[in-house]
Design a binder for these strands. Structure first.
Lengths: 97, 97
DNA sequence: ATCATTTGTTTCCATGACGGAAACAATAGC
DNA sequence: GCTATTGTTTCCGTCATGGAAACAAATGAT
């Protein structure tokens, strides 16, 4: 069972949605995350930097259509932190039912 | 079925915990919320003002041990907004499972 | 009545998060 | 070289947040 650790880094609304996107796939390109977010590319880049610095996200450069792109993924540590945060939220939800 | 509307006012970590506390009781005194939070009384007062201004929280003055206190409660509107927000979180959690 | 205590609000001030625009860097293709 | 694409960093303004202290209101004590 996961520790229900509330994580302020993940909790911020945009980052929560970013983590949710990344949790559902093996890897998503920066451009797709950008399209599915409501952020400018500079803001998105900064959020991803924060998540990367925490060790939650990594980017693998890939090439598609002649251009190099970032394939973003949650790291194992990131998946655990995200799962723990969701567990903390789940606990709040259950307490309130 | 509730609308899964994400509510930034409720989402902020301390306010989320405040709403969670209030959702579990008919009324809680300011002092108890203060003890169960990690906020100064000024910060708590300001958060409660925000929730009150949104129509999510009301305070009923009561007297206990010779002193008047605020008995805080979620309003019906507040309960709905909180439930909707939890539904939005629940949706995120389920998407990520 | 005066003073101190309790309960909560408001003011003041400092800090940090956040966001977008624009400049920048790196790479690929023409 | 020149342009377009992908993403980062810099710059700058704005808003959220928090605590301390001053304040207000009510009660009890002397």
């Amino acid at each position: 069972m996961v520790e229900p650790r509330f994580d302020d880094l993940i909790h911020a609304p945009h980052r929560l949605r970013i983590c949710a996107m990344l949790s559902q796939a093996e890897g998503i390109e920066f451009g797709e995350v950008l399209n599915r977010s409501e952020l400018s590319k500079s803001a998105l880049s900064k959020h991803l930097s924060q998540l990367a610095q925490a060790g939650y996200v990594t980017d693998t450069p890939i090439v598609r259509e002649g251009r190099s792109r970032q394939l973003l993924s949650l790291t194992p540590v990131g998946r655990i932190a995200y799962a723990d945060h969701l567990a903390a939220l789940q606990r709040i939800i259950e307490e309130s039912t």
